[in-house]
Design a binder for these strands. Structure first.
Length: 925
RNA sequence: GCGGGUGUGGUGAAAUUGGUAGACACGCCAGACUUAGGAUCUGGUGCCUCACGGUAUGUAGGUUCGAGUCCUAUCACCCGCACCA
């Protein structure tokens, strides 16, 4: 009776399917637990051993929670819309739906091989109409909502219309354009078109003109990650900015709540910081500066109103609307030239030359509202049009960029920092007193910020202002393979489709080439785009599609109620499952997916569709599994390969070799000859009869021949070994290289574990005898450690605990059923197949998946004595076994009379003896 | 430049509250069984030293009876953001 993992795993995987072992009910008396993986994009490359790391971790946790008596939701699906499939379609002519289906099948087979406990009846796929119907429906809710800043929540747009009819927009500043102000009369007299224009400025899903990356050579619009250093990733063609009308989500209205929400959820500090950084909240003030000899004024944004007396010049963004109006005749030519220069600068140049200081004087002067000083107004590309007011007051003694600029253009610098400013570099401190600053001289900076801001507001020349770095999220893609927008344009005005007509299905196309002027491929299907309309009017569909993150922004809700045809998720069911308790996925989604889905959740909460506003209670980012590449060394100009240890004697070239034909470091030379034609005649210079490869840790990639397919590992060692080895590699959050060789240790462990139960010759060994205290001690120490470690996701230490336990039980020759049976339950989350098999083998009829989790009993592990480490002056000198009941005096006496300690004392009397009960003894001389 | 993280044997790592550094594995060395072993088992394995002992958690300081763990400075690597006023 040997451990035949292939047979065992096939058998139980089939059994679990047959018995619907992983089917989860939406009603239960048990407490709930929702364990979610970030669903994968089914790429053509399939999974490599790096991908399942997080899936295994969440699977173990889900199974553990089930054993602990929870009703566990643990689903899986596919994020199936995306650029690569469309790109592949462009190249091969195969429809993305076809290749996506094929890829999904490959993924599914690979996943099934590993023995996950997913409830596949809840599978979702974002590219299926049954799913994206609801993505479209939620989008319409965004379109039909606005953010009421007073109530701090989203509300239906109809409410806003009623407010406008009664009172105009005086109490509800327009988020799209602060300058829009109107009364009820104006609103009521406006045309439908005008009203719709205004509403668009309020909607959470809205249309606006914005720049996209337009690549004329490819005739298409590129995503940001397809543009590398200003040229297209594919082909290296130049990319221009092009203004197009596109959809946006007004996520900026949620900036503050997204920020505050971070305090309530368990994400890593790094993750929270990334999000905070991305949102980029800053508090400051807007201050109006009049322009000397002009009726115009400039509003600047500053976070340091306290430095108002240190302003030496002002800088506008070159695109600022006032620039042309204020430029003097003498400077007009220079300004025009500078603006042209800025226009000509590609994104790439600006990125590459951040340190380059450029700018141009407009000839105009602003007047400092406090001391009346005239300060020159410049323009420079270091001031961005899109942030704040597109204008800054420059304080060179306190801001390094301003200082560099002043230095470069020889603008005199005013010192308001006293000795804290050395004239050589700016000092951006917020701690200290101000000098040379009129009414705030001598005041602490923080106090002065408040004082100046208050004065500005009293004088009516400015106000407190909070700004965010975050921009509204672009929600249009000029692409085919995404959700179509449920929007039609009646005479150019967007209207929501009727919800009962959803889904608006993606029409089938034969060609994936872009439409004219950067429109998506859908624009080419004229009979889909153009709808029948009354004479003299037009009715056209939106030709953009939604971006990849649309479907993933709410998918965690659909898993709860995946087959509902009435709503995206029944409120009672989302109330039952609630937030995701544990969400596992990669860091790459730190600010994209995770921010968008947090926003969508808040909107759905505001509109009353769900009862919570943070989707993920706890997030864990699994580390990357890197590849451990293998290198061979070819003697230059020959077909001779020299083993790594001898290569210093030759001039060699490094060549990556397929890791699958290397055992540890030893190259299979025969396989190498077969690997590639040009190596068929390879000759080897060996060391100790072996060819030893070099190693390099780098990204796992086909190109580097260091990818390992989990199927290969599962075939060779079994899924249980694979699962445990992935966990054994190290902490889940940490990145580490994959080393196939190491898996043998875990495999040996499972075989050793098996031998506690059964033997090749003697068959079943398990006995019904009562366990000894020693055996119980081993068992209960293990129960405690496994329970603790699994709960805190420390799976690597849990695996080694199992190893220690099995080593000890083997030494004790323990085959007692009472011990082994409990151990099996502990092991189930980690190695479900072998656990089920042995569970049945020792005579249980039911499945182990719902067995009661062992209960730790302290009485089995209490000790009466301890081997104390005894140090002299902090250095360990010996250990002494002393009873835990011994008094302090006894312990001191025993320690000091010890032979080794006596020797170190050299007859001296110790200054003091430190004794920490149960820990250690330290003798200080 | 800013923010975050990580530095421990030949390798992956452990040390949960400051208390025996290197658990558990891989690799390596020696041995047993064997026709054979890339199967299995036993023992050893941080470094220096015959040994007593010394020394060791990136580097340099500090706090403490005691520091991988706390504090300060510094270096290296990884990740994210990058002219955000």
């Amino acid at each position: 009776m040997e451990y035949n993992f292939r047979q065992i795993e096939r058998k139980w995987q089939q059994r679990w399917v047959d018995t619907q072992a992983y089917l989860v009910s939406n009603s239960s008396n048990k407490p709930k637990c929702y364990v979610l993986d970030m669903f994968p994009y089914p790429s053509g490359a399939g999974l490599h051993v790096g991908h399942p790391l997080g899936y295994i971790a969440s699977d173990i946790y889900a199974r553990f929670k089930r054993l602990k008596g929870f009703n566990v939701l643990h689903p899986m699906g596919y994020d199936a819309f995306g650029l690569p499939a469309e790109q592949y379609a462009l190249e091969t002519g195969q429809h993305p739906a076809v290749t996506t289906a094929e890829n999904i099948e490959t993924f599914r087979k690979q996943l099934d091989n590993i023995g996950f406990c997913y409830d596949w009846s809840r599978k979702i796929q974002t590219s299926q109409p049954e799913y994206y119907k609801w993505t479209q429906q939620i989008f319409l809710q965004l379109f039909d909502s606005w953010y009421n800043r007073h109530a701090a929540k989203a509300e239906p747009i109809d409410l806003l219309v009623r407010i406008f009819e009664a009172a105009g927009n005086h109490h509800h500043e327009c988020p799209g354009d602060r300058s829009i102000r109107f009364s009820a009369e104006t609103w009521n007299e406006s045309t439908y078109e005008q009203q719709q224009e205004i509403l668009m400025q309020y909607r959470l899903g809205y249309l606006a003109y914005a720049e996209v990356n337009w690549c004329p050579a490819l005739g298409t619009v590129l995503a940001n990650d397809e543009v590398i250093n200003g040229v297209s990733e594919r082909g290296g063609h130049p990319v221009q900015k092009k203004k197009m009308r596109q959809w946006f989500l007004r996520i900026t209205e949620y900036a503050d709540r997204l920020l505050k929400g971070l305090d309530e959820i368990t994400f890593s500090d790094a993750m929270k910081d990334m999000q905070r950084n991305w949102i980029g909240k800053s508090q400051g003030a807007e201050i109006k500066f009049n322009i000397a000899g002009s009726m115009e004024s400039v509003v600047v944004y500053t976070t340091r109103p306290d430095t108002i007396f240190g302003v030496d010049f002002m800088v506008l963004a070159p695109e600022h609307e006032l620039v042309d109006g204020i430029t003097t005749d003498e400077q007009a030519e220079a300004i025009t030239a500078y603006k042209e220069y800025v226009q000509s600068r590609s994104e790439r140049e600006r990125m590459a030359e951040v340190k380059l200081i450029t700018g141009c004087f407009t000839g105009a002067y602003a007047v400092n509202p406090f001391d009346g000083r005239k300060i020159p107004i410049w323009i420079s590309e270091y001031v961005l049009a899109g942030y704040g007011t597109g204008a800054i007051m420059a304080v060179p003694c306190g801001d390094q960029r301003d200082f560099n600029f002043a230095n470069h253009f020889s603008i005199p610098v005013t010192n308001i920092l006293g000795d804290a400013f050395d004239g050589k570099e700016a000092n951006p401190t917020k701690e200290g007193k101000l000098f040379n600053s009129d009414f705030i001289t001598g005041m602490e900076m923080k106090e002065a910020m408040e004082a100046v801001t208050t004065k500005i507001e009293n004088l009516g020349i400015g106000k407190r202002q909070i700004n965010y770095r975050m921009r509204d999220a672009g929600f249009s893609r000029q692409r085919y393979w995404g959700e179509p927008f449920p929007i039609v344009f009646r005479n150019g005005i967007p209207e929501a489709m009727d919800v009962k007509d959803l889904p608006l299905e993606l029409p089938h196309v034969e060609h994936y080439t872009p439409g004219e002027d950067g429109e998506g491929p859908l624009a080419n299907i004229t009979d889909w785009v153009n709808l029948p309309a009354a004479p003299g009017s037009s009715l056209r569909r939106e030709t953009n599609t939604m971006p990849g993150y649309a479907g993933s922004s709410w998918y965690f809700l659909r898993y709860m109620d995946p087959h509902n045809t009435e709503t995206f998720c029944d409120r009672k069911i989302s109330d039952y499952w609630g937030q995701v308790d544990l969400y596992i996925g990669g860091t790459e989604h730190a600010v994209g997916h995770l921010l968008y889905s947090r926003m969508w959740t808040k909107v759905l909460f505001d509109l009353g569709h769900i009862g919570f506003e943070e989707p993920y209670k706890k997030l864990v980012n699994q580390g990357m599994i890197q590849g451990s590449s293998r290198l061979v060394y070819r003697v230059r100009g020959t077909n001779q390969f020299v083993s790594a240890g001898l290569r210093a004697q030759y001039e060699t070239d490094e060549i990556h070799v397929d890791v699958n034909i290397v055992d540890g470091l030893e190259l299979d030379t025969a396989a190498f000859k077969n690997w590639r034609q040009d190596f068929a005649t390879a000759q080897f210079i060996l060391e100790n009869g072996k060819y030893i490869c070099g190693t390099l840790t780098e990204k796992m990639s086909k190109r580097l021949f260091n990818t390992v397919n989990p199927n290969v590992i599962v075939e060779k060692f079994g899924a249980d070994t694979f699962r445990m080895y992935e966990m054994f590699l190290g902490p889940v959050e940490q990145s580490k290289p994959w080393e196939t060789k190491g898996i043998e240790g875990v495999h040996r462990f499972l075989k050793k574990f098996w031998r506690l139960f059964a033997d090749e010759q003697k068959g079943l060994l398990v006995k019904d005898e009562a366990p000894t205290p020693e055996e119980l001690k081993v068992l209960h120490n293990t129960i405690r450690k496994i329970e603790e470690d699994t709960e805190r996701l420390s799976f690597n230490t849990a695996v080694s605990t199992f190893m220690i336990c099995v080593n000890e039980l083997t030494d004790l020759k323990c085959n007692k059923k009472a011990v082994l049976e409990q151990l099996l339950v502990l092991l189930t989350p980690y190695a479900p197949h072998v656990s089920e098999e042995l569970w049945a083998l020792i005579g249980n009829s039911g499945s182990i998946l719902d067995a009661p989790f062992p209960v730790f009993e302290a009485k089995h592990v209490t000790e009466s004595a301890k081997e104390y480490p005894v140090s002299v002056n902090g250095k360990l000198r010996t250990t002494i076994n002393i009873s835990l009941d011994a008094s302090v005096e006894d312990v001191e006496k025993i320690a000091l009379s010890n032979e080794v300690i006596q020797r170190w004392l050299e007859g001296k009397t110790p200054k003091k003896v430190i004794f920490v009960k149960g820990k250690m003894i330290n003798v200080v001389i």
